[in-house]
Write a protein that binds this DNA or RNA. Structure first.
Lengths: 361, 361
DNA sequence: CGTCCTTATTCAAACGTTTGAATCTCTTGA
DNA sequence: TCAAGAGATTCAAACGTTTGAATAAGGACG
């Protein structure tokens, strides 16, 4: 009864109940024609399919239908908690459209990235969503995708100039939000941990921070600005923050608050401060960015700027689906840009500036 | 030049350089026969393929070759940091074998789980790796996979009784490790947060804890044992720990250490203790289990029992590949079980028991 | 009785590959 | 001159579906 390949085919069912492959196909794929098939026949075929454990071969089906029902999701690093909510949003969007997200994880490695991109093309993904980061310096590979007319959307970076629809958080607004929060709490000597220079977000957040400072008539002491090194692995944010704290404390420059580039950095800062005996938030406030899980569950919970990641994922998938449908109707979709609004999440790592100047022990 | 479908086929190349589809196929797929193809022809075909941007159609290829080169990875919830290192291990194993991991995330939803399982079967995955948890109560769906002769391996749960090769951490040893650590630090009044009853790990870890206690001649006060409720979402571990702390402190029963079921629970405990003014580890030690990212980056870092997740993922993929190869050679693979050895990671959340009895404020 | 619907089913081609067997063209040796 | 072999290329069938067109078997109607 079992085929040699181990999988049941239409032919098996056809033989088993004495109909042609066509009829069986029509019934099981619920084609329009199946209305003409006698109810008794339908019943019989369905029963047999169930009994034999039939599952239509996606390869044969896609080949014939010229649709893969697949959208590739290319994450630069799944171990970055940033990616997960985006993926969830995408899945939520794709599920009802019965598209399968082909989720691949480049693990921040360029070589893997290229490999997977090729695989995506071979698997005839109908669309590609890239969850991006610094991995993209040379994006020539996207050309390959474009050449094949596959719609592409990018999350976490603005590539509209290269004709790619993009979604990202309004980094400038986010940076300003964090800074305003610290200023409102009375902080004046605020240390800033800038992101790695290879990241696009870095400049934008920095611009927001500066805007907020100048609007409040505050000048940022350049000596209190620290530059994170480039990223080597997924924990380098934490270590950067730790290192910043040690260095800044050693320099004896007073500060009452730290604005960290992202949550992991903020957690590193907290660690560094604590081990020098400085309490957060009593002696020094710390604010992060992203709102990932570790920031929420650490103690004190890190005040941070929330990115609506799930919503961005949802929208990215929507756009991709629309582009696919649009292409069928020969309509050209315009390149879109979505600037998601960040939101300040106040937790326990920020407090009013201490009355007297005290930050180095 | 572009086909209507938007993808270049062998026929396009064949036409463009005047050879038959067969020759082109032989060259581009580097079949053994390609040694007989004239070097000049090879060159010409390769150039044309590159020029037109040819990518072989995985669907047609798999259909013909009867191999999907795909192994499905079914994670119960990607937002659980537990899953990620396992996935990384799997990827690392699969990459050199040029198998594509078809990564799907059930998001702890039974319905999604079933849907994806069907998809996996339709996509003719040659093997399935399940990263498991409580999601599996009724595992009848695995039968469907088994019926189709698809090798299956499960990570995080022992299903050898149901004929499924399994990898999991030695929970009993891990529980004992954590308990011994606390005992060695001089703790005697140790509160235990048991895991949810629906989880299999719960009983085993508990058994390890009890063994360690009795070996040290210590009795566990049943009043200090707390039972986590069943899981509702990915943050329920944290909330459970928080709730435990509040309840236990309200009861005024003295304790100097907490052994939490997992890291997220431990983080919840720390939060709960801290907000009642109890310092970790000075006043009370806390130990977790799993060694996920948030435990490492919080302050104080959580002392925990490390699971070698990446190694487990690696091995799971190895087994799957072996089973696939074995099946080709008609060899029956025996069901295997791997009990990974846990390792105690000492961080800052545990310390010697305070000299005087003090834990409730 | 022939024509024309309707209903139920099947034919056959196609999707893009791969591959065992076949073909064709030389060259070589007897 | 011819058979045999080697080298280069092509034929054609197959993988499991889907689907427009075709077929067959009844009726109903004029």
């Amino acid at each position: 009864m079992q085929r040699k390949s181990g999988h049941v085919t239409l032919l098996d069912i056809a033989r088993a109940c004495g109909y042609s492959v066509s009829t069986v196909s029509i019934v099981l794929s619920e084609a329009p024609l199946s209305q003409n098939v006698a109810a008794s026949t339908r019943e019989q075929i369905r029963k047999m399919a169930l009994h034999l454990g039939y599952h239509p071969d996606a390869y044969a089906r896609s080949l014939r239908r010229r649709r893969s029902q697949t959208i590739a999701v290319l994450a630069y690093d799944l171990s970055d908690p940033f990616c997960i909510p985006v993926v969830h949003g995408i899945q939520a969007s794709l599920q009802p459209a019965s598209y399968l997200p082909l989720l691949v994880d480049a693990q921040t490695q360029r070589k893997l990235f290229d490999n997977y991109l090729r695989m995506i093309l071979e698997r005839r993904a109908e669309g590609v969503i890239v969850i991006a980061s610094w991995i993209f310096q040379e994006t020539n590979l996207l050309d390959d995708i474009e050449k094949n007319q596959v719609p592409i959307v990018i999350v976490g970076r603005d590539l509209t100039k290269r004709n790619v629809s993009s979604l990202l958080v309004d980094n400038k607004a986010g940076g300003a939000l964090a800074m305003q929060h610290l200023i409102a709490l009375g902080h004046r000597r605020i240390a800033i941990v800038r992101g790695p220079e290879e990241l696009f977000d870095t400049e934008l957040r920095w611009a927001g921070v500066q805007r907020a400072a100048s609007e409040a008539g505050i000048t940022i002491d350049p000596k209190l600005v620290y530059q994170l090194p480039n990223i080597t692995d997924s924990t380098s944010g934490f270590e950067g923050g730790l290192h910043f704290a040690q260095e800044m404390l050693a320099s004896k420059r007073p500060f009452t608050a730290v604005l960290a580039f992202d949550d992991l950095t903020a957690l590193g800062v907290v660690r560094g401060l604590n081990s020098a005996g400085i309490r957060v938030p009593e002696d020094c406030s710390v604010v992060g960015f992203d709102d990932v899980l570790p920031a929420a569950v650490s103690t004190p919970g890190i005040t941070t700027v929330h990115q609506p990641l799930k919503e961005m994922g949802l929208l990215a998938a929507e756009w991709t689906l629309q582009a696919i449908n649009g292409r069928e109707q020969q309509k050209e979709r315009p390149v879109q840009l979505h600037n998601a609004q960040p939101e300040l999440i106040v937790r326990m790592s920020t407090a009013r500036a201490p009355a007297r100047r005290k930050s180095s022990p």
